[in-house]
């Protein structure tokens, strides 16, 4: 089944770029292989109770993944396109801004690394400020203040009022 528009490319682009959705198919294929390998290398001997063991469902899912990967590739080669999702703040006429996405992913990863040693108030503030910066906000006076305020407020509301523990880190020990 094909979907989306099959309009010819306005500008000549390389074949691969035009068919980048094949990449999804490849990923699904790899995932299928991974699931099947994991299922078939599982040692099931005495643990199995009943006719259907822990292997059955992963094997079915793995085979289905391979099948869908092939069907999707066929669909893409016949000109089918997945429609990119629109939205309120989304402008699909511009090409993807990879720099922003990578920066955001980096900032987010930074938070994961820093949350335990530095505590949530500091790592959270860095996460907010870093994300806002990556998204194009350049108010060097206002942004850090908003980030620090939001982070501290969230920490107190969750940790002290709602009973959801967050790591305070060295900052909270000092205060």
């Amino acid at each position: 089944m094909t979907t989306g528009t099959e309009t010819p490319a306005r500008r000549p682009r390389s074949w691969l770029r035009e068919h980048s959705e094949i990449g999804v198919s490849v990923l699904l294929l790899l995932l299928g292989v991974l699931v099947l390998t994991d299922a078939l290398t599982m040692d099931v001997d005495i643990t199995q109770r009943g006719p259907v063991g822990p292997r059955t469902v992963p094997v079915v899912v793995g085979i289905a993944l391979l099948l869908v990967a092939v069907l999707l590739a066929a669909d893409v080669l016949r000109g089918g396109r997945g429609e990119a999702e629109g939205g309120e703040d989304i402008d699909l006429s511009e090409p993807s801004d990879w720099r922003t996405v990578l920066l955001l992913a980096g900032v987010f990863l930074g938070n994961a690394v820093l949350i335990d040693p530095l505590g949530f108030p500091i790592s959270g503030a860095l996460l907010f400020w870093g994300s806002a910066y990556a998204l194009g906000s350049r108010h060097y006076d206002r942004d850090p203040l908003i980030a620090a305020g939001l982070s501290l407020l969230t920490f107190f509301v969750f940790n002290n009022l709602l009973g959801v523990p967050l790591p305070g880190g060295p900052l909270m020990e000092v205060l």
Binding site: F108, I115, S131, A132, G136, S137, L150, F158, P165
Partner: peptide, 30 residues
Amino acid sequence: RPYLYAGILFFAAVGAYAVGGEALDLVILL
């Protein structure tokens, strides 16, 4: 908009960390 989407990432991180207090969950989340 920068504040809006920074805020979404911020609260998503809070929520995922609150599940089990594991920094690894944040990596899985990403």
